[in-house]
């Protein structure tokens, strides 16, 4: 698998995490929800690669997070090509619900410009409330609502993208009662992926309706129907 090198040109805060701009050529950019295993070229103290995800709403530069505390602007990173399955926004979607369930909505933000570009209306449902620097990333045409409001609006979206930790998967069925779902949904499942698909090590295993899948290769974005009503 070809390794790529890129420079970390800028670092900024996004809520509680460090994010950065990487000068990778556009064909090597991960899709929202895909991940980029990366390691600093000069750092001998890094024991495992960091899995970087697209964040923010910027479209001209590649914004990624979470960055380790030791990375600094100007550092050279080595990365693999984008890994795993990302979000696929249905082309016909006109009412897009983004749901951050117990996590910051950073990894959903890159979907906003994609949805707006196809003339969709976007609502971000989240719990907890995003920090001001995250809110400043969100265009004013996007409505931001508490997660609790989603249950009263389940007839509204025609597409849904959610982001949550693996241990929160059992909550999905409470938030999204299956009998009320009439839209396509995808879920980004956050979990450690230390081997990035090399070892089938099982740390990132996710229970789905079709058995155990690995987030590092089969995900980390899964169809909502695959992970609804499973133990996590």
């Amino acid at each position: 698998m070809p390794e790529l090198t890129a420079k970390l040109v800028e670092i900024f805060s996004l809520g509680d995490i460090r994010a950065g701009i990487l000068d990778l050529p556009r064909p090597a950019w991960p899709e929202p929800g895909q991940y980029l295993p990366a390691q600093a070229l000069s750092a001998t103290s890094e024991i495992l690669p960091t899995q970087l995800f697209r964040v923010a709403t910027e479209t001209e530069r590649l914004a990624l997070a979470p960055l380790p505390a030791s990375w600094q602007p100007g550092d050279t990173l080595v990365t693999l090509p984008p890994q795993g399955h990302g979000f696929q926004l249905p082309r016909g979607a006109r009412r897009v619900a983004l749901c951050a369930i117990g996590v910051d909505p950073n990894r959903l933000l890159p979907l906003i410009p994609l949805a707006l570009a196809q003339a969709a209306t976007v609502t971000l449902f989240c719990d907890p409330q995003p920090s001001p620097d995250i809110l400043s990333q969100i265009p004013s045409v996007v409505e931001v609502a508490p997660l609790a409001a989603l249950n009263d609006n389940l007839t509204w979206p025609d597409a849904l993208a959610a982001d949550l930790n693996r241990d929160a998967l059992p909550r999905l069925a409470e938030i999204l009662p299956e009998e009320k779902l009439s839209f396509e949904g995808q879920v980004l499942v956050r979990t450690d992926m230390p081997c990035h698909g090399l070892a089938e090590c099982g740390v990132c295993a996710v229970e789905t309706r079709h058995g155990t899948k690995l987030a590092c290769v089969d995900g980390p974005v899964f169809d909502l129907n695959e992970v609804l009503h499973v133990a996590g």
């Binding site: 390691q39 024991i47 690669p49 080595v78 990365t79 230390p194 090399l198």
Partner: peptide, 9 residues
Amino acid sequence: GNQLWGIGQ
């Protein structure tokens, strides 16, 4: 072990 999981190593 995990040396094999490293990138650019």
